[in-house]
């Protein structure tokens, strides 16, 4: 994957800020987030609920409801085109065509009153200008591609007739119908059972090779990240706290939060009497602590951390960390 880094990025997000305003507070859900996704790579975004990972990915397709949301700044450049300033008509052309989404809950993403086939055909007729018959054949092919048995029968089924794993396959088929350049998968396997999750992850990896799509993979589950991602971005309280390739993240995490996340998880190989924990709770985004947002929960917190917000710094090639004391080092270093 390292050679892909020399290419021009497919997606560039620069200083993205997505805030939510309510009468008496402002929630900085995404606060100055920058990253790139390169051609053919999978970038994993990991974090706990409320860290801004889903809002980041929804901002890319301008899917955040405005108001209450507002894009306060930044740029999102997908394949050379800026998304945030784009007219709506142009954006509609890009959504579903160059950029496709898979969400967590397949039942709420599928329309329950239309047949599976129709929902896929709609995408193809709109973006590829196919007629009804061509689209129908293409829909069968799309279902076949995601290894759905009897696609000729399933196109005429309604979503309720399918199991959770099958519905998620339909979502993938629909997302990939127009061979998008970027596939955003927001917790695509969280609602699925372990054995079904393994099937879906396996399928996504195969399809990625087949059609050479880049994937932005959002999850709270570190083991899924270990399975899928080439590079990993860890988010906490609306900010990127660490960004590196997947092996580095798991072997040499430098941000105390990343380390805490990895160590607190009972791995299949760990045994012992206690887990290492990160104390405290995930902070309220409308009432963030002074200084570094992680400082109240951090074992290495010092006066400097409570006073100022650290910048995201490249501490070694391609390894970015937002911490005054990466790896718990002393301040005078």
């Amino acid at each position: 994957m390292t050679e892909t880094n020399t290419n021009k990025p497919l997606l560039e997000v620069k200083h993205l800020k997505t805030y939510f305003h309510s009468r008496n507070s402002t929630v900085k859900a995404v606060d100055d987030v920058s990253f790139e996704v390169y051609q053919g790579e999978t970038l994993g975004i990991v974090g706990e609920s409320g860290c801004g990972k889903s809002i980041t990915c929804m901002s890319i397709g301008r899917l955040v409801e405005c108001p209450p949301g507002r894009y306060e700044g930044g740029e999102i450049i997908l394949d050379g085109e800026e998304i945030l300033s784009m007219p709506d008509a142009k954006l509609r052309d890009i959504r579903g065509n160059k950029l496709a989404y898979i969400f967590q809950e397949p039942m709420t993403s599928l329309n329950p009153v239309f047949k599976i086939g129709y929902q896929i055909e709609e995408v193809l007729m709109l973006h590829r200008g196919m007629n009804k018959e061509e689209a129908h054949q293409a829909a069968i092919q799309a279902l076949d591609r995601v290894r759905i048995p009897n696609p000729e029968r399933v196109v005429n089924d309604y979503p309720f007739a399918l199991s959770g794993g099958m519905r998620q396959r339909v979502m993938i088929a629909m997302a990939l119908a127009c061979s998008p350049k970027l596939l955003v998968a927001d917790e695509p396997t969280t609602a699925l059972d372990v054995t079904i999750q393994a099937q879906v992850l396996d399928l996504m990896n195969e399809l990625k090779k087949e059609i050479d799509t880049s994937i932005l993979f959002i999850t709270h589950d570190l083991s899924v990240i270990a399975e899928m991602a080439d590079r990993v971005m860890v988010m906490y309280a609306g900010k990127v706290v660490e960004l590196a390739d997947v092996n580095t993240i798991f072997e040499r995490p430098l941000h105390p939060y990343t380390r805490g996340l990895i160590e607190s998880r009972p791995d299949m190989s760990t045994s012992g009497t206690r887990l290492n924990v990160i104390p405290g709770n995930v902070p309220d985004l409308s009432d963030l602590p002074e200084g570094c947002s992680f400082s109240p929960r951090c074992a290495f917190c010092c006066d400097k951390c409570r006073a100022g917000v650290p910048e995201l710094v490249e501490v070694e090639p391609n390894h970015w960390v937002r911490c005054y004391r990466p790896g718990g080092e002393d301040l005078d270093n």
Binding site: N247, I262, D267, S269
Partner: peptide, 23 residues
């Protein structure tokens, strides 16, 4: 074997069993 491993270097394990079909 379906539970994803925590080690990114262990992915694409050839011994992995992926069950076909649904419950």
């Amino acid at each position: 074997s379906a539970a994803p491993s925590f080690d990114p270097r262990k992915r694409n394990n050839a011994n992995r069993i992926i069950l076909q079909g649904d419950l």
